[in-house]
Design a protein around this nucleic acid. Structure first.
Lengths: 144, 144
DNA sequence: CTTCCTGCAAAACATTTGCAGACTT
DNA sequence: AAGTCTGCAAATGTTTTGCAGGAAG
């Protein structure tokens, strides 16, 4: 599934959420920065250039809404702020390599978890909806 | 490696950290609640029964220290507070099943990641030190 | 028009910090 | 005795909330 704007607008519309200019530019910020992991403050700064009157509270409320609709995914890298990335609904695999030295976060995809998931689900009587994998270590630059 | 108190005290001593009564009762709180994932506030409440004069700031400072020494492991389940568990140094495998409905966190162990880790490390030129895996879904009770 | 959404300011939390006194070693 | 550690209170940083006006459907 694509994260294109028309799909998302349609989804908001179906659920009777209003498509306000603020919501539009916040979404655009994520599409323009699809590889980033933006915090509320960072989104706010990006979005302020387009609409200097936007309020930080609106950003927080919009991020909450979009995360609830699973248009965005909440992330936490232990730096004290919640971060978000735009993610494919249904295809849950957002895995990260987090550098312990410089803090850089790389992404990687891997389909390895599917079969494991089933084993874990069975063994623990747990219905798995999503998973998250983080590897902590040192990136190429910092390994030297 | 065991997380017994004598080992930990010895380690603190080697590193010239003082073994104060506050640090002792905070450590004891984790040993008495080895299966829990305690937040600072929760530790504070446990510890206050033994020493009503202890300060919350001391708890925070102690948790920071113990996490830095890798005696405790920081956890984040997206509830806005950092949580900690006492963990085996060296043997990094703290994986969690997080119920999206009731919020309960179960633990599970699995050694599956070792070989995968090597593949990822090689492919991404990343030196992996630790990993963290979370499965989100519904626990047995909430699945019904 | 009706209801939801926004911006602002204040409030609410979690966590950190400065400082003077107390305690470990 | 020296230096670390503690408790308190104030400060900080992030996120939430109340409210009155404004905009989307």
């Amino acid at each position: 599934m694509e994260y294109n704007l028309d799909n998302i607008y349609q989804r908001l519309h179906e659920l009777e959420y209003k498509i306000t200019p603020q919501r539009q530019i916040i979404l655009k910020a994520f599409i323009d920065n699809a590889t980033e992991h933006l915090s509320a403050e960072e989104v706010y700064n990006i979005v302020k250039e387009r609409d200097p009157n936007i309020g930080l509270a609106t950003v927080y409320r919009t991020l909450d809404l979009l995360a609830e609709l699973e248009i965005l995914q909440k992330l936490n890298f232990g730096d004290g702020k919640t971060r978000y990335e735009i993610g494919q609904r249904g295809e849950h695999h957002h895995h990260h390599l987090i550098c312990l030295k410089c803090g850089r976060v790389e992404e990687f995809d891997h389909d390895f978890l599917e079969s494991l998931e089933q084993a874990i689900a069975k063994k623990n009587n747990f219905t798995i909806i999503d998973h998250e994998v983080k590897f902590y270590g040192y990136c190429q630059k910092c390994s030297k």
